[in-house]
């Protein structure tokens, strides 16, 4: 049977590839290197990625809350950020189909795509960490309100974890969430002269505190739609982390590493399953 061996939370700001090169001693460069090293030690066969979409792959004409890519491969980015290199990633449609079916039978009314392009989202961390894994992409609508509840995102992640663990192949699977924790992008709370802002610093600190303690239950209770909205129009990306933690297992415990980056409003974290 397949097994979930670990999980990580990494940011995906499209300008990070430049920032990491320009500031190799900074938080982002250091943490990406640490997460890449941890992933390398676990030697996953495959990554299941919970990612947002920034209204590039999906749009208001047809906007699923959960979209599973059931594809041989997928490409991106489709949103024209030059720091993000065009690439095609190999996927595993058999596992993706199994995840879709299991989640559907677990009462999640998700959508599927059999021809998929993605935006910068999952591509940025993989580019920076110089990884080209097999990836099963799962896109969550966390940026075009209304979005699902935190508890629902976590429950969906649990269903994905169950699906992976019931998949009849010997695969070591890493679950990955990409996004920020607090952030305003293109909205009224951006900083002067910048496309982003980081309101809700207290929420970032609280999320890191609770996850550092392994207290996912309290985080789920506190991550109300209002609390997330107050932390910025991209703060819903936390839902990808909660889904990833659900897939990791019932008691993910304390992470092996967790570190916030307050200026942009994201965090890095890595968990090993069963620790």
């Amino acid at each position: 049977m397949a097994r979930v061996i670990g999980g990580c939370s990494v940011p995906h700001n499209p300008f990070l590839p430049v920032k990491v090169k320009e500031d190799p001693e900074g938080v982002d460069a250091r943490c990406f290197a640490a997460v890449a090293e941890a992933i390398g030690e676990l030697e996953p066969d495959l990554v299941v990625a919970f990612s947002p979409d920034h209204l590039n792959t999906i749009f208001f004409d047809n906007l699923p809350t959960i979209l599973v890519g059931i594809v041989d491969e997928f490409s991106g980015p489709n949103d024209d950020y030059p720091p993000v290199e065009p690439r095609t990633l190999v996927s595993d449609p058999d596992l993706a189909r199994h995840v879709f079916h299991h989640a559907l039978r677990s009462d999640f009314d998700l959508s599927r795509s059999e021809s998929l392009q993605v935006d910068h989202s999952v591509l940025v961390p993989l580019q920076i960490m110089d990884l080209s894994p097999v990836v099963v992409p799962i896109i969550l609508n966390v940026l075009a309100p209304p979005v699902m509840n935190a508890t629902r995102a976590h429950a969906f992640g649990r269903a994905v974890g169950e699906a992976i663990r019931s998949y009849d192949r010997d695969l070591a699977v890493l679950v990955l969430a990409d996004g920020g924790v607090i952030q305003e992008v293109a909205g009224p709370r951006i900083r002067p002269g910048r496309p982003d802002g980081a309101p809700g610093q207290d929420w970032l600190a609280r999320v890191v505190e609770l996850l550092g303690d392994g207290d996912v239950g309290t985080l789920l209770a506190e991550a109300t739609p209002r609390r997330i909205a107050e932390a910025g129009n991209a703060a819903g990306e936390l839902l990808t982390v909660l889904a990833m933690l659900g897939a990791l297992g019932p008691a993910p415990g304390a992470p092996r590493l967790i570190e916030p980056e307050p200026e942009t409003g994201h965090m890095f974290a890595f968990w090993e399953a069963g620790r």
């Binding site: 309100p145 209304p146 979005v147 305003e184 992008v185 293109a186 909205g187 009224p188 709370r189 951006i190 002067p192 002269g193 910048r194 496309p195 739609p225 209002r226 997330i228 909205a229 107050e230 129009n233 703060a235 819903g236």
Partner: peptide
């Protein structure tokens, strides 16, 4: 909307966009 500024149409560029959008009242819906 920020795509309009990225493509520099309708009198917008990123600094203009930033100045204008910051006058709006944030929508706190999620």
């Amino acid at each position: 909307l920020m795509g309009l500024a990225r493509r520099e149409v309708l009198g917008l560029d990123l600094p203009t966009y930033s100045d204008r959008i910051r006058t709006a009242e944030p929508r706190l819906d999620y």
